[in-house]
Design a protein around this nucleic acid. Structure first.
Lengths: 218, 218
DNA sequence: ACAAAAATAATAGTAATACTATCATTAATT
DNA sequence: AATTAATGATAGTATTACTATTATTTTTGT
């Protein structure tokens, strides 16, 4: 985890882990704009100043959480495609991992819940880079996990068709749309062909068709 | 323009138009998070309370501007595809209209600058719906212009291939990516296959290939 | 041209936000 | 047991996101 994202590593203390765990839940509950360190402090019975000792501000905290998610997804991707040789099956595996909402087994861990992180990325993900500091933040490598994952997907695409001209763009499109289409399905269904509260299978089919028809076109 | 977006119609007064014009420019300059009605008031030599008489809050103001843009784009789309019969050419025209940065001829109009609106949508567009109020706002028809445009693109896709299963999703994907890929190109180029400061042609080619290969796949 | 109505400006006020700073207390380490 | 480090308690500040009130200016209808 990039050290510029925190002042004190939250993984290394009880309070730190509490901040991360409950901060994530609180952002999901009230939304990033409404979220404040004050509210979080009250929630976990600590003080604002204690939280400020871990994170510079709430935006860095958001990026920290988002990065945790993308690093975790990349770990999962590597794990699941490890002994697959066919790049087509690799890509299908990736799409499934991106779209499918993780089931929360580990309800009582004292750190990040996968499921909460998934919701955060869906609702607040793009706010991590849609700021006037993007370029500066990018130089500080704050978006490395996302870019790494994009690169990894891109390289599988190249495996499948070395002649395809837009491996990174189609990879970032799939990455963005995995969550956007789900968000639209649940909140602005007119922007999709999936009805509200439908399952993920149709989104997966859509992304697969978009990806493979793009890559494998003659 | 949806009447829930404003308290007093800004088009109908000098001050109203000034608020809209310079508000748009100011958001682009400092970013939506940093933007306040106070700062805008100072900029145009009026008072905070005067601005509040036009817009309930800055989020509604943002949605107002974004909606202006999408309505304008739909008007342009209708105008440009008016006497085209071939749906393929229609879609290519739409993609061009979405991606290409409008050249600012009308520098001194007293209302919205097309070019500034384009920048706003690229940087702040998704913030209009990424809030806890999406569903409520959607019921108030705040996203109608965007949804209408999506529907229009979708119907051209159906013209081209009535059997294609995801006309709305691919339309919203093209809509989102037209601006995202450009943003990435300029700010996070690792997520694309276009180098910084390159022109729009490659993005257009990418979107065209993605769209047509999806729709016309056997 | 004059009165009434409408719009704007000026000013004040409030609770909350996004911090920074200081010092006391508690917990961990050597 | 002494030192260091982490946390808590408290205070303070400029700014934000508003609401309210009253004065002044502009527009309009007759």
């Amino acid at each position: 985890m990039n050290e510029k994202l925190f002042l004190r590593n939250p993984e290394e203390s009880v309070l730190g882990r509490k901040i991360v765990k409950h901060g994530l839940i609180l952002i999901n509950k009230i939304g990033f704009e409404e979220f404040t360190f004050k509210k979080l402090a009250t929630e976990i019975s600590t003080t604002e100043s204690s939280i400020y000792r871990y994170f510079e501000n709430k935006h860095r905290f958001l990026v920290y959480l988002i990065n945790w998610y993308w690093s975790y997804i990349e770990y999962k991707v590597v794990f699941y495609i490890n002994n697959i040789n066919n790049p087509e099956i690799k890509l299908k595996t990736v799409i499934k991992l991106l779209v499918e909402e993780p089931i929360n087994k580990n309800l009582d861990t004292d750190f990040i819940s996968e499921n909460e992180a998934y919701m955060l990325v869906m609702w607040e993900g793009s706010k991590s880079y849609l700021t006037r500091n993007v370029s500066k933040d990018n130089k500080d490598r704050l978006f490395k996990p996302y870019k790494d994952l994009c690169e990894r997907i891109s390289s599988i695409i190249v495996e499948l068709n070395p002649k395809y001209k837009f491996p990174h763009s189609i990879a970032s499109t799939v990455l963005e749309m995995a969550h956007s289409q789900k968000f639209f399905m649940q909140n602005l269904p007119a922007l999709t062909d999936f009805s509200k509260d439908q399952d993920d299978k149709k989104i997966i089919l859509f992304l697969e068709s978009m990806l493979f028809n793009s890559i494998q076109a003659k």
